[in-house]
C-alpha cells in the first residue's frame, strides 16, 4: 500500500518533470510569464531602476520575447545572475532564457550544453584604468593588479593575454560588475577588465568618468547573445527569430512609431509576412501570427533598442561599430524571413 503510493508519486513526478522538459515555450505560455536571467546590474544592458523596473539593451530583448510569446512586454520576471551562477540557473530551469552579456564559445556549446541562438552584440575585451596611472597601453600593465569577474571568458583571455606578452599580473577576483566597480574605485585594483561595452557602461556610472580611460587594446572576440538550454530547438527558434525580427525591422525601416502605418501601406511581402499580415509564419513557431509585430511594437527595432539604451547620446555612448547593419558595414545580418 505504502509502496504503491510511493510509486504513484514517483510516476507522477517523472511525468510532470518529463512534460516540463518537453517545451519551454509551452511552459512560458502556461505560466503567463517569461523568466529571464539578467545581469545583477550593468547600466545600459540590464539594471533595475529605483522602482525595480528593469531596463537595458539585454532587458529589451527579453521584453521582445515576452511580447512575441505572451503578447505583453511586461510579463517578464528578471532574475539577477552573476557570472558564476548564470549557466547553472539556465540549466536547472530556474530561468527560461539568459540574456546577460554572455559570450558564445565552442566549449559553452559543447561541454556546457548551451545553445547560443544569436549574437545581439559583437564585443571584445578591454581594460579600463585611471588616467593618472599614466598607462596608455595594456602591455604596460606588467605587475599590475587587475579586477576580473570569475567564471567568465574574460578571465581566461586575461590569463592568455598576459602570458602571450610575457608580463605578470595579480588578479583580484570579483563576483559581478558592481563589486568590480567598488574595488576599482577604491583602488584595490589598477585595472578593470571586461567586455569593452561593459567597461563603457561602468565608466558611464562613475562620477568622474573623465578621469578614467579605456585602453586601446581589444584582446578578444566576445560575441554576446541570448542563450537557451541545449535540446529545446523550438524555444531556441522562437528566441532567435524574435531577435532577427528586430534586425529585419531595422533593415526595412519599421519602427515602434510607424509600424501600423507601414503595415497598412506596405507592398513588401517580407514585411507583411513578418508582421503577420500574410501567411502563417509566426504560427509555425507555435506563436500568435502577430507575435513579431507585437515584439517590434513593444520595444522598437534593433537600432532603436541600441540607440535608446547604449547608443551615442546616452551616457554609455557606444558607436554602432561592428553592430551596425550589414548594409552599413556592420555584422548584424538576419536571414530572410520566408
Amino acid at each position: 500500500m505504502e509502496k504503491s503510493v510511493f510509486f504513484g508519486t514517483l510516476a507522477a513526478t517523472a511525468l510532470v518533470s518529463g512534460l516540463a522538459a518537453a517545451g519551454t515555450l509551452d511552459d512560458v505560455k502556461a505560466r503567463g510569464e517569461l523568466i529571464c536571467g539578467s545581469n545583477t546590474g550593468l547600466t545600459g544592458f540590464g539594471a533595475p531602476d529605483a522602482n525595480g523596473n528593469w531596463s537595458g539593451f539585454d532587458v529589451d530583448l527579453c521584453r521582445a520575447v515576452a511580447a512575441a510569446v505572451l503578447g505583453d512586454a511586461n510579463k517578464v520576471k528578471f532574475v539577477p545572475t552573476t557570472g558564476e551562477t548564470r549557466f547553472t540557473a539556465l540549466q536547472s530551469g530556474e530561468v527560461d532564457l539568459l540574456v546577460r552579456n554572455s559570450t558564445w564559445t565552442a566549449s559553452r556549446d559543447s561541454e556546457l550544453a548551451l545553445d547560443f541562438v544569436a549574437v545581439n552584440y559583437y564585443d571584445g575585451q578591454g581594460f579600463m584604468v585611471k588616467k593618472d596611472l599614466g598607462v596608455s597601453s595594456a602591455k604596460e600593465l606588467d605587475g599590475a593588479t587587475v579586477c576580473i569577474q570569475t567564471g567568465t571568458t574574460t578571465e581566461l583571455n586575461l590569463a592568455d593575454f598576459f602570458k602571450e606578452n610575457n608580463i605578470s599580473y595579480q588578479p583580484v577576483n570579483v563576483a559581478d560588475d558592481s563589486e568590480a566597480q567598488r574595488q576599482y574605485i577604491a583602488g584595490a585594483c589598477d585595472a578593470f577588465t571586461t567586455d569593452a561595452s561593459g567597461l563603457a557602461a561602468t565608466r558611464a556610472t562613475l562620477p568622474d568618468a573623465e578621469n578614467h580611460i579605456i585602453l586601446p587594446e581589444i584582446i578578444s572576440k566576445e560575441p554576446l547573445g541570448p542563450v537557451v538550454r541545449h535540446g529545446d530547438n523550438n524555444w531556441g527558434d522562437v528566441v532567435r527569430w524574435t531577435y532577427y525580427a528586430l534586425v529585419i525591422a531595422e533593415e526595412k525601416g519599421i519602427t515602434q512609431a510607424n509600424i501600423e502605418e507601414v503595415l497598412a501601406s506596405t507592398n513588401d511581402e517580407e514585411v507583411k509576412r513578418l508582421l503577420g499580415a500574410s501567411g502563417d509564419m509566426a504560427a509555425k513557431f507555435g506563436l500568435d501570427n502577430a507575435a513579431f509585430k507585437n515584439a517590434i511594437a513593444a520595444v522598437g527595432n534593433y537600432g532603436e533598442i541600441f540607440a535608446r539604451n547604449i547608443g551615442e547620446g546616452t551616457s554609455i555612448n557606444l558607436a554602432r561599430g561592428l553592430n551596425a547593419l550589414w548594409t552599413q558595414g556592420g555584422l548584424q545580418y538576419a536571414p530572410p524571413f520566408r
Partner: peptide
C-alpha cells in the same frame, strides 16, 4: 572558489 566556482563554471561540470 576554485573547484566549486571557477572550475565548475568554466567546465560546466556542476
Amino acid at each position: 572558489g576554485t573547484l566549486g566556482g571557477i572550475t565548475r563554471n568554466q567546465t560546466g561540470r556542476e
